[in-house]
Write a protein that binds this DNA or RNA. Structure first.
Lengths: 329, 329
DNA sequence: TTGAAAGCGGTACCAG
DNA sequence: CTGGTACCGCTTTCAA
């Protein structure tokens, strides 16, 4: 491996000078600068990030902590983040937390030990205490944390939209699924839907659900149609759950959307591939990732922050688990 | 941040001694060892990975390069890798290559500059030249590279299976999709299916496809049923493509599987959620990731390697895009 | 405008 | 068994 000393020797200057041209700091005469650059290219030298990081106490690394990359919502987020940080010369140290405090602490530790310059987390668990003393900025993604910069979608409005569309399309017996209490955005959309439903004239039930796993969702789907066989509209807490509902309804021989309408949340890639394709409230996952990365990078570069909390709009994606409504409807 | 020197001072010993107990190297009396450990806990000291890495020229980091985490096959791989390396105390530096030579080179560079101890790559592009001079071991995943350790599924057998199951279930006019030439495993399964089909009595066509993107696949699906309207069985190059075929067939009013059977490849999570659920040849993605990580870690720890090439078995997952076959065959 | 040298926080060799 | 110290590769005063 060629070091800064090799370059210095070869170019006939000191390492200090090489360092100066490397970082464009201090004075260097045009002549020597040229010579150094030449030598660098000649020797194919590229500075050792680790050594640099040891001295400056920072790196070009950003920590990314996701609950589980295997959950189809997260790859989009991750991709948005990666595209943005990569374009600005940063790289990702990545880990899955499984919403497990120990793993999370583990990664925070790793991040610190490796001198990351900032991190993005989408885990719901341990709050302030854990993040308070970190020596680098943290952005919360798809999570709402008053005291920390965060990026999330407008869940409340999403919930409202779902309820409005459902009612507009004629469902009279709506079942509303309430997502995990610990997931704040899920509660937001639940509240949004609840607001609209309570002020409307349709009947509705609320069913409590405690996770986003497909296996669990299958059980709730069964339970839902047993408990509320007359349900003709389901607002699910996310697309995974909506998919389970769809399957169960189909299995029971119900026609979708004529017997029962279903609206999900997220718009994960597979939702458009289902049959019938799932109507859903779309969260702009890729953009959320990108915005989170942008925000974090602003903190890292100590640029001016206009707004610590970025809320992105959601949109209703009309597909085939909701009825068509005529244009004057 | 508390350093090794703080610990040494507080414990009344030298940094050398602290380092010894930290790494369990050399002699340390039980008494001083205890005292040092105590002090470490008292001060909540934890060694700086960057400093350590600068001297030893290695870190606890492993590079992971995937084509695109957004492609549903890869999160599983990534998860398997992460679980394994994490359990052995290593962490991941992660990047998407988009099968783009420049991005790939970029990441290889980053990995080197950050002293990773090894890397896993699932990208198809630049071969030997690029990887030859890397100062750390590389494992190829879902890619076959004679000269490098690699982990992949038995695509040939998978292709054979698909063809056998298709024939056994009565398709007489099979269309076989040939995946991208650059993706060796795709070619393997194509060959496997071709072998069986050529020796069978059914008619078959081969259609060339050049990517795994869903958008492209939709076009081929259209083309397929235009060109070969009598097709009653499709062996797709992967589940994404199979999904597109399924959609198109449904759109054309065909009954699945009675009019046309479809078999995919991979068994990505969404395949079981489709309606009808997709029959497919399953690659054990999570296990592949895990095996790749295990293999890499053996290289890193300089353990004995029995086999540089690990081939994992594939299985036929019978779902609802293939007909049932009675027990006697 | 340039160079010498002191670290950054560890590891490991060599004396004692 | 323990401590002093050189050194990993780079950045940054401080002098010249």
């Amino acid at each position: 491996m060629v070091t800064i000393r090799d370059v210095a020797k070869q170019a006939g200057v000191s390492v200090a000078t090489v360092s100066r041209v490397l970082n464009s700091t201090g004075y260097v005469s045009e002549d020597t600068r040229r010579k150094v650059i030449e030598t660098i290219q000649l020797l194919k030298y590229s500075p050792n990030e680790v050594a640099r990081s040891l001295y400056t106490r920072e790196s070009r690394l950003i920590g990314l902590l996701l609950p589980d990359i295997t959950n189809p919502f997260f790859p989009q987020l991750a991709r948005g983040i990666e595209d943005e940080v990569h374009s600005q010369g940063f790289r990702l140290l990545f880990g899955n937390s499984d919403e497990d405090i120990k793993k999370e602490a583990d990664y925070l530790h790793t991040f610190t030990q490796n001198h990351v310059v900032g991190m993005i987390t989408a885990t719901a668990i341990s709050m302030k205490e854990t993040y308070e003393q970190l020596p680098y900025p943290v952005v919360f993604l798809d999570r709402i944390a008053e005291q920390y910069p965060s990026v999330y979608a407008d869940g409340r409005e999403g919930g409202r939209m779902a309820a409005i569309e459902m009612i507009k399309r004629g469902s009279k017996q709506v079942t509303l699924l309430k997502g995990p209490l610990s997931v704040r955005p899920a509660q937001e959309r639940f509240q949004g839907a609840l607001d609209v439903l309570s002020e409307s004239e349709v009947d509705f039930h609320v069913m409590n659900t405690t996770s986003f796993s497909f296996e669990d969702a299958k059980k709730w789907a069964k339970e839902l149609f047993e408990k509320y066989p007359n349900t003709d509209g389901v607002i699910a807490s996310n697309d995974i759950v909506a998919t389970a509902i769809l399957h169960e309804a189909l299995k029971l021989g119900k026609s979708i959307p004529s017997d029962v309408q279903i609206i999900g949340f997220d718009d994960i890639p597979q939702s458009s591939l289902l049959f019938p394709a799932l109507s859903t409230i779309r969260q702009p996952a890729y953009d959320m990732g990108r915005e989170a990365a942008k925000l974090l990078l602003k903190y890292i570069k100590k640029e001016h922050i206009e707004e610590r909390h970025i809320q992105l709009p959601v949109t209703f994606i009309e597909r085939n688990t909701t009825r068509k409504v005529d244009s004057n409807g």
